[in-house]
Structure formats: structure tokens, C-alpha cells
Design a protein around this nucleic acid. Structure first.
Lengths: 339, 339
DNA sequence: GCCCCAATTGTGACCGTGCACATCCGATCG
DNA sequence: CGATCGGATGTGCACGGTCACAATTGGGGC
């Protein structure tokens, strides 16, 4: 019986006002819980709103306030575990703060694609942007378009601009590298991510830094594309020479593919070759062998990133910008070298 | 030098009109490329728009048109590969169609959480909703709230309502089961997904249907939670009895955990036990052993889902609703039983 | 008993765009 | 050559909120 005839128009603030016997402005005050409204009036208005199933019209509010309460997310590879987790966390945090989130994916790294995605977001009149496409080029475009809203980048090194949330990828990579060195490895390879990814570069730097700090000679890293497939093919090529006893992969997927290749070659992990990944996706504990890796808390990352952005928007006091240090998770894929 | 002083207000349609020496309505016509506008006028207006860096105000447009050009996505577990891929595809498709996408995640399956997420979307005045949280309960809530906008569910069986995109999960599950039976297995287990997930239930039904159609006696399926961790623990328990030679898992992650448990028990895959997964996530080709699984094209799914919803919104001609049939991908995790 | 102040409420304009309708103009037709 | 017609453009208002300011009310201090 609660079924209502579909009215031609949704009830507006004035409809509520009329039925409650007050002015539309009073209704507006109830909506924004203005301090000086008599309790009784407030209750009456709220009851009418209930009856009418009144919903404030967001467009109208945005128009008159001149603010959209929407933030944009610019994302690459949003279907991967890490970014996807962060996005989810961002959305939750935004919702809690009363914001809406609109996501634009970039399919390729070319400026046109980036610009199109940014355009899409700006058309939405977003109040801020979270960038989860930490390719260096994205930032160039961002700067060149002189975006007028604050933006924050996820997973940057924190070094390049003040727009980044500092996750110390370098420290994480050093942890992983140090672990291998401490086990006694000296011939260590690095399978890096795409060169234009800031975080890939940071991990590579961490690797190289630690190697040189510990006085271990290095080979040039191989540049991959984050996929397990690439890890597999890279592994096949590398094993032709096989003058290494350990390898540090820039993410868990590539490590998975690489281990596949190592097994195919009839070698043992970690007996013949030790493997370390990066990210600690939920599956890596069940790889064969279970993968030693560096844990990143993607959800926490998303939340803190959002907090940062909201601060920027409100121009309020700076939130906690202290860098997040990833943690090494040691499992069965690493061990001392054969000898 | 291209830096502009931040003007107090963004240029509006009237600013453009004034500078171009036309009425605001003419500018509006240019924006919506109305047929009867003289070429020269159009060009002049467009040039002024360029100079002023004019951006149409979405809120104003939504207000006066009474339409938001926004669709909502209601999602559970949006960080998993499958849903995440579909969401990305939906976003792309929406963007191409000139729509915006707003995602709301539900954290738990309780009605309050679902209602809160729906509320968030409705406040946005979305024109349609895609549901990627195919828990039966979500639909109950959806029905009970008598949502006034069209909605489409991803990954339903297609049987329950006319709101679903038919992916024939049952057929997919039958393919997998049939594969095991054809190999000669008779003692086959099924590790299902959470009971209230429609797709989990469909896969279970497919399994049971095929088993009974082929006259193979069945054991009650185990209900899991989609995670690799669960697969591992379930595997440990199951192997206590070990009266089966094959197992069909409702997704690849659980299959991964299960294979981990099987290896831990010192058994061979597929020598002692064959394993089949579902989804074909990009990593499963590199599991150990590479996983036989059922491929779902999540991106295609998202695209078609979006097409369906746009049809519903436009009340246009029904799009292609023919069911998608998943494909079996045979890899090394399955083989004939020992004997 | 009067004045002042704060709390509460009302009034009208405005945000930027699209729609309905009116207007203007040149070309076509009888 | 005037009536008609359709393309091109202008005018005013509506959309549903918020904001600035005005108006009304009630209570306390002198």
C-alpha cells in the first residue's frame, strides 16, 4: 500500500515547505542542520520529508553552492589487485566524508588518453583528483594542463612533488634486496616494472642502492610490464645464461611467472634460485613455493591518500604525511645459495 | 605565460554569448549542436569558447535537463580481479556513451550496508544501476526499496529476473565437470562459493546437474568464501579423508589454495588429484601446475552489461541478451585418475 | 515598561543551462 | 507582388537548491 503514484516531478524543497507550513529556507536549514531552528519546527519538517520521500537534488545543490562534493580518480590498470584495493578504500573514505567519487581509466600512456581522462574528470567539476596512474608522463600532462584543483598521487616516492603520498618504495626494495644479500647471495638480478612507472623506478633505485651499499656488483635490471606472462618469458630468457642465484621481482605477478619458468627449467626454488616479489597479494602465500615478498597495505594507502586530498581541498592543517614503510614477509621462496 | 589569473567565477554560457555577440541560447545550441545554426555563427562561438577555456557546468545542465547522465555501480569485493575488470569495462563504456560512473561498495552483506550504498547512489540521482554484488540479498533489498531507476545485474544466472545479463554459469560449470568425468573421474568434489552469491549457486547447480546427468554419485559441496586461504584450509581438511580424485573449485583463487594444500600433503597434481578452477584470471596459467579453468571474459561482460543498461534507460530496443557461454581452458592441473 | 539582542523565520535574487515560444529574415509560390 | 514558410536567432522563465539580508519574536536588564 505504500506504493506511490509516480509523480511527474520529484518533491522539492518548496513542496516540503508548503506541507510543513514553513518557508523553503527553513527547510533548507533543516537539511543543513543550521543551529538556530526550533526543535519542534525541525521535527515537523523532517516528518514531512519522510512522508514525501524527499531527496535533495544534488545538481541543484552543486549549482547554487558552486561545489560538487565530487573527487576524481585517475587510474591505470585498475583491475590489478593493488590499485583496485586502493580505489575501493578511497571510495569508502570519500563516502564517509560525504564525497562522491568518479573514476576515469586511462588505457594507454599516451598524452591524448591521459588528457581525455582528465577532461572527463574536469567536466565533472571535481574538487580534487587522486592519481593512481603513477606514470611519470601523467604528471607532466597534469602540470602542463595547469589543473586548477588539488591532486594527490598514490604510490609515488614522495620525492618528486609535494602532491605525493610518501610510500617508501625505495626502503621496501632495499629490505628485499638486503634479505637476499644477507642470505649470502651475490649474483642477484632484478626484474623491474615499466620504466615510466614511478614506483617501478623507485624499487629499482632501492635495489641498486642497497646493492652498491653492500658492495655487491650488479647487472642491469630487466624492464617488465607487471604481468605474470612477462615474468615467464623473461625467466626463460634469463635461464639461458643462469649466472644468478637470486632475483628480486618488482611485483608478485611477475615473480609468479618467473617461478613458473624456473620450474619448467627443472630447477629448484629456493635451492637453485631464490625469488622475492613485491606487494604481497593475497594469493602469494599459496604460490609454489609460497613467495617471500614485501607487503604493501593498499587499503591504508588509499585511506591516507584520501585524507591528504581532503586536507588539500579544505586547505586545512596538513595530515600525517609520514612515509609508510613496507614490511618484508619471508616465506619459502628464498634461502641460502647452493654454495 | 599561458597561466591565467584564477577568475572569481568560471566563464558561463552568457560570458561566451556576450563576447561572441549572440544570445546565450545560441551558445547553448552550439553546445548541443542543434541543426539550424549558421556555420559562421557556430565557428565564431566556438572560437570564443576556446579563448575563454569555457567548460559547460554539469550541475546546471543536470538541473535544467532533469537528468544527471550518471550511472551507479553497486559492488562487492571490487578489488578482486573479476569484478574489477568488469568495473573498468563499465566505466570505459559509460564514458564512451557520455555517462559518468559512481561506484558504491558494500562492505558486508547485511541489509543496512546495502541500503546505505544504494542511498548513496540514489542521492546522486543516478539514472541506472549496475549491480556487481550478486548476492541474493542485494536483490531483495533492491526490490523492497522499489528503486525507481532501471538496474542490471552482472553475472546472474539470468533466470531470476529480467534485470540480469545472462552469463551461463551453469553451462560453464557443466563444462568443467564434464571434463573431469570424461577423464574418467568418478569421485569428484566441489568447492563452492558463498551460498548467497547467485553465481556461486549457479556453478554449484551446474556441477550437480552434470553429475546427475552423467549418473555419477555426488558428495555435498563445500561452501567457501572465494579466498585462496579458504581453499588451503579446506584442502587440508578434505585430504584427511581423501576419497576423491578430482575437485572443481568455484574460482581460481580457491583452486590455488587447494593445490597448495595438496602439495603440502605430498600428493601429485594431477597424478593423485585433478583440480579445475573458474574465471581464468591472468595468473592461473602460471600456477603450479598451470590451472585448467573456465574462462570468463569479464571485460566483455562489463561492456554488454552497460549496453543493456543504456538500452533500459533510453527505453530503446533491447540489445543482445543472448547468454554468454564461458569456455573451458585445459591446462596441466587435470588428467586421468591414477586408476 | 521600554529597549536591545539573539534566536528564529521569511523574502527575493541568483547559480548556469535548456526549453517553449516569439521574432526576424529571406526565399518560394501562386 | 504579397502571403506563406522554414531556417536562424532572441526572450523569458524554470529547474531546485543556497545566500544575503530583512523581519519577526521573545526574554532579560535597566
Amino acid at each position: 500500500m505504500s506504493a506511490e503514484l509516480p509523480k511527474s516531478r520529484a518533491p522539492s524543497i518548496r513542496d516540503v515547505a508548503r506541507l510543513a507550513g514553513v518557508s523553503h529556507q527553513t527547510v533548507s536549514r533543516v537539511l543543513n542542520n543550521h543551529p538556530s531552528i526550533r526543535e519542534s519546527t525541525k521535527a515537523r519538517v523532517q516528518q514531512v520529508m519522510e512522508e514525501l520521500q524527499y531527496r535533495p537534488n544534488r545538481a541543484a545543490r552543486a549549482l547554487s553552492r558552486g561545489t560538487s562534493r565530487t573527487i576524481g580518480v585517475l587510474s591505470a590498470s585498475s583491475s590489478q589487485y593493488g590499485p583496485a584495493s586502493s580505489i575501493a578504500a578511497i571510495q569508502d573514505a570519500a563516502r564517509d566524508a560525504g564525497y562522491y567519487v568518479n573514476t576515469a581509466n586511462i588505457t594507454s600512456a599516451d598524452p591524448d588518453s591521459i588528457e581525455a581522462a582528465l577532461d572527463h574528470l574536469m567536466l565533472q567539476s571535481v574538487e580534487g583528483i587522486v592519481v593512481i596512474a603513477p606514470q611519470a608522463r601523467v604528471f607532466e600532462v597534469l602540470e602542463s594542463l595547469s589543473i586548477s584543483v588539488p591532486y594527490v598521487a598514490l604510490q609515488s616516492t614522495g620525492g618528486m612533488t609535494d602532491h605525493g603520498l610518501s610510500v617508501d618504495q625505495i626502503a621496501g626494495a632495499r629490505l628485499a634486496t638486503r634479505h637476499l644479500i644477507d642470505l649470502g647471495h651475490r649474483d642477484i638480478y632484478h626484474l623491474a616494472g615499466p620504466q615510466d612507472w614511478i614506483e617501478a623506478e623507485a624499487r629499482m633505485r632501492g635495489f641498486l642502492d642497497e646493492m652498491s651499499a653492500m658492495d655487491v656488483p650488479t647487472t642491469a635490471p630487466i624492464l617488465g610490464d607487471w604481468t605474470a606472462d612477462f615474468g615467464y618469458y623473461a625467466g626463460r630468457e634469463l635461464l639461458r645464461v643462469r649466472d644468478f642465484t637470486a632475483i628480486f621481482c618488482s611485483n608478485d605477478q611477475m615473480a609468479l611467472g618467473l617461478m613458473h619458468a624456473i620450474r619448467d627449467a627443472g630447477l629448484d626454488i629456493p635451492g637453485d634460485i631464490s625469488v622475492v616479489g613485491y606487494d604481497d597479494i593475497p594469493e602469494s602465500a599459496h604460490f609454489w613455493p609460497p613467495l617471500t615478498t614485501v607487503r604493501q597495505d593498499f587499503a591504508e594507502l588509499g585511506r591516507r591518500c584520501m585524507a591528504l586530498l581532503l586536507d588539500d581541498i579544505a586547505a586545512g592543517p596538513a595530515h600525517d604525511r609520514s612515509p609508510i614503510i613496507p614490511a618484508l614477509i619471508v616465506r619459502a621462496s628464498t634461502g641460502p645459495p647452493a654454495f
